Amino acid sequence: MSWTDERVELLKKMWGEGQSASQIAKELGGVTRNAVIGKVHRLGLSNRTTTKTETKPKAEAKPKVAPKPKAAPKPAAPKPEPKPEPATTSATPKPAMSPARKAIIPAGQPLPPQPSANEISPEALAKVNEVEKSAKKLSLMELTERTCKWPVGDPATDNFWFCGLPVQAGKPYCEAHVGVAFQPMSARRDRKR
């Protein structure tokens, strides 16, 4: 099935009238409800100005019954005076909300970078930077069981490579990259505190 101009116009018309995606799919024939929803989103029609319930008001099923007479209101009791709270010397501050939590990010937008609970120590990063200067810079096809498989760079560019230095026994990476990739549990737990 292809989306011809006539079918797209019929889709737009029915969507504007408030028809459901299932009803539109049935009317068009040869398309699924999900195909209709996808086309609606690609055309940018997802925000309807009118809905089906707005175009046809519902008829009331039950006739209105006369309300029962209300009882006379009771006289209001006098309100007690608020007691002053004792002053405290050490007020507990409320936890501050991070700016990322305060902002509402629209759907489909990338989230801002979040701080990691398992940040890498500066010493380990310095060691990795030194090792990467002496790396063999292998391509994917050049990797073996004995070469470090740590990726460096953006895979979508020509400047992407793997470390290629000798691996540590039983690990897929060289000593420097193992220090970054595999961290002891106690060190991670301590950093979270």
Results as ranks from 00 to 15, higher is better:
residue 157 T to R: 12
residue 37 I to H: 00
residue 20 S to N: 10
residue 176 A to R: 00
residue 96 A to T: 12
residue 175 E to Y: 10
residue 15 W to L: 07
residue 171 K to E: 14
residue 193 R to A: 02
residue 169 A to E: 09
residue 179 G to H: 01
residue 126 A to M: 13
residue 32 T to K: 13
residue 72 A to C: 03
residue 4 T to H: 11
residue 90 S to R: 05
residue 117 A to Y: 06
residue 170 G to T: 01
residue 31 V to E: 01
residue 6 E to R: 14
residue 49 T to K: 11
residue 141 M to G: 13
residue 67 P to F: 02
residue 52 K to A: 15
residue 108 G to E: 04
residue 159 N to K: 15
residue 37 I to T: 04
residue 105 I to F: 14
residue 191 R to T: 11
residue 68 K to S: 07
residue 182 F to R: 12
residue 137 K to D: 06
residue 121 S to R: 13
residue 142 E to F: 04
residue 86 P to G: 08
residue 100 A to T: 15
residue 159 N to W: 09
residue 43 L to C: 07
residue 85 E to D: 11
residue 84 P to G: 03
residue 186 S to N: 09
residue 39 K to D: 01
residue 17 E to D: 07
residue 155 P to L: 05
residue 182 F to K: 07
residue 165 L to H: 00
residue 165 L to K: 03
residue 61 A to P: 02
residue 50 T to I: 13
residue 178 V to E: 03
residue 121 S to K: 14
residue 170 G to H: 03
residue 38 G to H: 10
residue 125 L to P: 00
residue 167 V to H: 00
residue 76 A to D: 09
residue 50 T to F: 14
residue 15 W to Q: 07
residue 2 S to Y: 08
residue 113 P to S: 11
residue 99 P to Q: 10
residue 102 K to G: 02
residue 160 F to D: 01
residue 23 Q to K: 14
residue 183 Q to Y: 05
residue 142 E to M: 10
residue 108 G to S: 03
residue 135 A to F: 05
residue 10 L to A: 10
residue 70 K to G: 08
residue 134 S to Q: 15
residue 10 L to I: 11
residue 163 C to E: 01
residue 31 V to P: 02
residue 51 T to H: 12
residue 85 E to R: 12
residue 190 D to L: 06
residue 47 N to G: 05
residue 48 R to Q: 15
residue 36 V to P: 00
residue 175 E to H: 07
residue 66 A to T: 12
residue 165 L to P: 00
residue 103 A to R: 14
residue 130 E to P: 01
residue 53 T to K: 09
residue 46 S to T: 06
residue 98 S to C: 06
residue 82 P to V: 03
residue 117 A to T: 09
residue 125 L to Q: 03
residue 23 Q to V: 11
residue 145 E to N: 09
residue 45 L to I: 04
residue 70 K to L: 14
residue 103 A to N: 13
residue 34 N to M: 15
residue 139 S to P: 00
residue 169 A to D: 12
residue 11 L to F: 02
residue 54 E to M: 14
residue 163 C to F: 03
residue 133 K to Y: 12
residue 38 G to R: 14
residue 108 G to C: 05
residue 87 A to C: 02
residue 190 D to M: 07
residue 61 A to I: 14
residue 77 A to N: 02
residue 18 G to W: 00
residue 124 A to L: 08
